[in-house]
Amino acid sequence: MNSEKLNLLWLHGLTCCGNTQSFLCAEEPLLSSFLRKVNLIYHPAISEEEELEVKVRAILNGDIKLDVLVLEGAVPKGESDKTYKLDGMSLSELVLKLSSLADYTVALGNCAVYGNIPALKEKNVSGLQYRFKEKGGILGKDFRSKSGMPVINISGCPAHPEWFIGVILSIASGKRILLDSYGRPKEFYAYYTHDGCMRNQYYEWKVEAESMGTKEGCLFYNFGCRGPMTKSSCNRILWNGVSSKTRSGQPCFGCTEFDFPRANLWETKYNMGIPAELPEGVSLRGYIMVSGIAKTFAPDRLKRRLIDEGE
């Protein structure tokens, strides 16, 4: 075993495994670089080692140093935890033990970060350090790993592979990782989904998409786009290297935030003609003034199709 590699153990909680699949979609050479710098001591779907017990015992007796613990999926606590028993430990007990030994603990995807869909109807299910908005989760709000960092939350349903690999490579090279108030690396979550969206001009001039299935128009006004309220790099680091939700005509559903999935995902709620939720930091008065002017002066070219038979 190459001792310079990061020892990384990946666990599954209640999950669709979408973050594993997303991880496998990483663009080259990132995936190779990850595999070169990381010793994947166990991963339920892709590692050579199949016996989790063997690795866990070795970590618990100190034979293997655990550098990074990655959890994908939400975790049931106490009574409701029927997931599995490993040497008599339930998943939540296992997570507690391993996170106390690991230098870094990473929650990958919205289930591991906030509980997400599996937590919707189960009070006992939560993320590692959050349950939706509430801080606490399985590890408690004061949790710090050996490195001194709280859980590094890589939110998203799923998380983009480059956000995850980016964080792991930063850990491998000993760089500092700055986190936002939800424990998410600022490097990737200082941005909004709105940043880099191809529809920005339509947003600025308040030109709304009247129907779905067109390149033109902003989806904020009619179709519930959460782009300006959602922290993500979806339109900066494209999905599968090629596109994003808003680029393919879907509104942003806010899947990197604690309140995903909200109700009425395809609709914009209005209060007296003004969107009930405004982009973060924008005042009602400011919005009314700016949008009134924008609408009045919106250039005609934004009201036509981008590519058609005309000149």
């Binding site: 496998l24 979609c25 299935g213 999905w239 599968n240 290297g241 596109s243 939700k245 393919s248 005509g249």
Partner: peptide, 29 residues
């Protein structure tokens, strides 16, 4: 496998977890 996922995402925006099919058609153009 990623030739396929990239091709898919070119139309559907992303893979996994696209929602680009809607009643009446698809959202992409």
């Amino acid at each position: 496998s990623n030739y396929a996922t990239k091709a898919l995402a070119t139309l559907a925006g992303q893979w996994p977890h696209s929602s680009y099919m809607v009643p009446g058609g698809v959202t992409c153009d």
